[in-house]
């Protein structure tokens, strides 16, 4: 089940207009992504962590989210230093660990952690419906936004349907294994989920027709007044200037 654990909260970040969050997420992550100098990357990381701090997120949950990247990073740290050509830093047996290789690993790690922190602090603290609304008001076509929001809405229903089918199979003694019977059962399950999803789409559309849907989506404006917009804009703009300044300086 998808949960949105970071959306609950009442920190400074939670009280910022989602449009601002999205715009600054894009700008900050792009700045960090194209940066090359170590000092820029470190300032990007500092900005990310500062935002996470301001959002008052649970430290452990935050690290758990980052954990996904750490696994990927470990792979890079194992492979890159010994395969990247350049001056050796030190040697382990027959393997040469190259200085540029290590530097590259460090940069990749810093970049990913910084960008992920920014995303977690700004995007993961916004509910998907608020993101959809913000994207729409930022000029993203309504159809795309509704596609995203409705997909998210019905993932839960489809998951429930999958669980129900799986339960039905399990109570009749089904145990997945590596045999034709299991493959066939999973194929049936998958097929059934597609059929049900399509039937569901049909009924949802009918329900919409019954409520006067004519192909035109209307969106409600913001419901909650956001109180921290000014402070947030000043802070993130400053961070952006520092990051860009450092990059140009170097």
């Amino acid at each position: 089940m998808i949960t949105e654990p970071f959306t609950a909260g009442n920190s400074i970040i939670h009280n910022v207009d989602p449009r601002l969050k999205i715009v600054f997420t894009v700008m900050l992550s792009c700045a960090v992504a194209v940066a090359n100098s170590l000092s820029t990357l470190l300032s990007g990381l500092a900005a990310g962590l500062l935002l996470v701090g301001l959002a008052r997120l649970d430290g452990r949950a935050f690290l758990k989210r980052l954990g996904v990247v750490f696994g990927f990073m470990a792979l890079i740290w194992v492979v890159l230093p010994i395969t990247y050509p350049g001056a050796p830093l030190f040697e382990i047996g027959p393997l040469q660990v190259s200085r540029p290789g290590v530097a590259l690993c460090l940069k990749i790690t810093l970049k990913s952690v910084a960008i992920l922190s920014i995303l977690i602090a700004l995007v993961a603290t916004t509910t998907l419906s608020a993101i959809g609304n913000a994207l729409y008001r930022l000029g993203v076509p309504g159809k795309l936004v509704y596609l995203m929001v409705m997909t998210y809405r019905y993932i839960f229903v489809i998951e429930n349907e999958y669980q129900r089918l799986m339960r039905a199979a399990r109570i009749r003694g089904f145990q997945p294994g590596t045999n034709i019977h299991s493959y066939k059962t999973f194929a049936y399950l998958t097929g059934m989920i597609f059929i049900r999803a399509s039937a569901r789409a049909e009924s949802v559309y009918q329900a919409m027709l019954c409520r006067g849907f004519k192909g035109q989506f209307h969106t409600l404006g913001p419901v909650i007044p956001y109180t921290q917009n000014k402070g947030f804009t000043v802070l993130t703009t400053a961070a952006l200037i520092i990051i860009l300044g450092l990059e140009i300086w170097n």
Partner: peptide, 14 residues
Amino acid sequence: DQLFSPTVLEDVSF
């Protein structure tokens, strides 16, 4: 089938 909007208010005002 009937509730497809993210929030209750959006759905009722549809």
